[in-house]
């Protein structure tokens, strides 16, 4: 499993959206082409991904530099609706895990039943002692956590990769 790798990714654009999903989803789809994700799932289109975070929260992953403009346009589209759009790109970091040992590495750190995880699922969970979210991106896994604990997260992930 030595060909399992952990990569700290370059910054991506992250936009948090709060509000009724019936209100948020059409605006997001119009802006990004990403369809409304069902509970706990995500959808992707045009190099962007929209993730279901909670019953009144979506998160959009996009290009880092483009995030402020996308957020501004989403705010416009939402108009007077009770909705909040905030760029949070710098608050979180992403890691990419690839290779045959990726799931075993994750399964050593988080209480997740990987066999029962939907392929499109974004699982928000506990990674050792920090909150984290994981999902699949093709054959790779993404791990997202808060920026301040990036070093801790990387130590965990590298330590968990099977030899």
């Amino acid at each position: 499993m030595s060909d399992t790798t952990v990569l700290a990714m370059d910054p991506v654009g992250l936009i948090a959206l709060r509000g009724p999903l019936d209100v948020l989803a059409p605006a997001v789809e119009a802006e990004t082409g990403c369809a409304r994700p069902a509970q706990r799932l995500s959808t992707a289109a045009n190099g962007m991904r929209v993730m279901w975070m909670s019953p009144d929260e979506l998160m959009l992953i996009c290009d880092h530099a483009a995030a402020p403009d996308i957020a501004a346009r989403l705010t416009d589209r939402l108009g007077d609706a009770f909705a909040t759009v905030v760029v949070v790109s710098d608050a979180r970091v992403l890691f990419e895990l690839t290779g045959p040992g990726a799931v075993l590495a994750l399964a050593s750190l988080m209480p997740v039943d990987f066999a029962r995880l939907d392929p499109a699922e974004v699982r928000r969970t506990r990674m050792a002692q920090i909150p984290a979210a994981i999902w699949r991106e093709g054959a790779a896994w993404r791990v997202m956590c808060f920026r301040s604990v990036a070093r801790y997260a990387e130590t965990l992930l590298r330590g968990a990769v099977p030899a």
Binding site: S108, S148, V149, A150, R151, G159
Partner: peptide
């Protein structure tokens, strides 16, 4: 895994 530098998360 909770030992050494990973004993607890250190926020930076």
């Amino acid at each position: 895994e909770a030992r050494g530098v990973a004993f607890q998360p250190l926020r930076r």
